[in-house]
């Protein structure tokens, strides 16, 4: 919205923004990711649930609606608003915080999960669009006792620095190995073309994935 007290010159605005610190911003806005979730939860309970109009069209929301999501082989009943993204449903409603929300715009692929084994950005998908599909998250890749061979290779190759992009990287590379057990480095580069790592650990990700591919073929 246009604000007459703010300069219209974009350069001035840009310089203005640089004065904002992260701490100051969080204080001023009074919101962290968890704070936002709580607020949304409070509003949600005041709204009506799903209403059905006719056989062809079903209206959901705007308040919370009960839905069932299939995640990592289990069915979960959750009550979510239609605007809840799949990433938010996984992290906030199901407590599966392995999936990271970083850019929240599909620009970094940190939130990568599989929808019927196809890698997607869960931050750019409404949770209701996952109904009837099998969602796989980083938590579902390993068993209780054994890491996925790719996870073991990431550890061995030290394919992470800060680790924040790692769940997304692993999900992208594991999806590649499901589809193509004989990837070249070019294939790995292509598979993670959307995954951003600001530490720059890409070469380790390539080597870990290529080694895991070899190990998985032998196994």
């Amino acid at each position: 919205m246009s604000d007459p007290t703010k300069p219209n010159d974009p350069l001035l605005r840009e310089h203005g923004r640089k004065g904002i610190t992260r701490r100051g911003f969080l204080k001023g806005a009074g919101l962290t990711a968890a704070g936002t979730a709580l607020l949304e939860g409070v509003q949600a309970f005041n709204s009506e649930a799903a209403t059905s109009t006719n056989s062809e069209v079903t209206e959901l929301g705007p308040g919370p609606v009960p839905v069932r999501l299939h995640v990592n082989g289990k069915e979960h009943a959750v009550s979510i608003e239609p605007r809840t993204t799949l990433a938010e449903a996984l992290r906030i409603h199901l407590g599966m915080t392995g999936t990271k929300i970083i850019c929240d715009r599909g620009a970094c692929s940190g939130c990568t999960v599989w929808l019927d084994k196809v890698p997607v950005n869960s931050c750019m998908m409404l949770a209701v669009d996952a109904i009837g599909h099998e969602v796989t998250t980083i938590e579902g890749l390993s068993t209780e006792s054994e890491p996925h061979p790719l996870q073991a290779a990431f550890v061995k190759h030290d394919a992470m620095q800060c680790g924040f992009c790692t769940p997304g990287m692993v999900m992208s590379c594991a999806a590649l190995l499901e589809k193509n057990p004989h990837p070249s480095e070019h294939d790995v580069r292509h598979a993670i073309a959307g995954n951003l790592c600001r530490c720059g650990t890409y070469p380790r990700v390539f080597s870990a994935t290529l080694e895991a591919a070899g190990n998985m073929r032998r196994a």
């Binding site: 709204s47 069209v57 209206e59 959901l60 929301g61 308040g63 605007r83």
Partner: peptide, 9 residues
């Protein structure tokens, strides 16, 4: 994101 009604078709 604002809240909305979703008409599933």
């Amino acid at each position: 994101m604002n809240s909305f009604v979703l008409a599933e078709c």
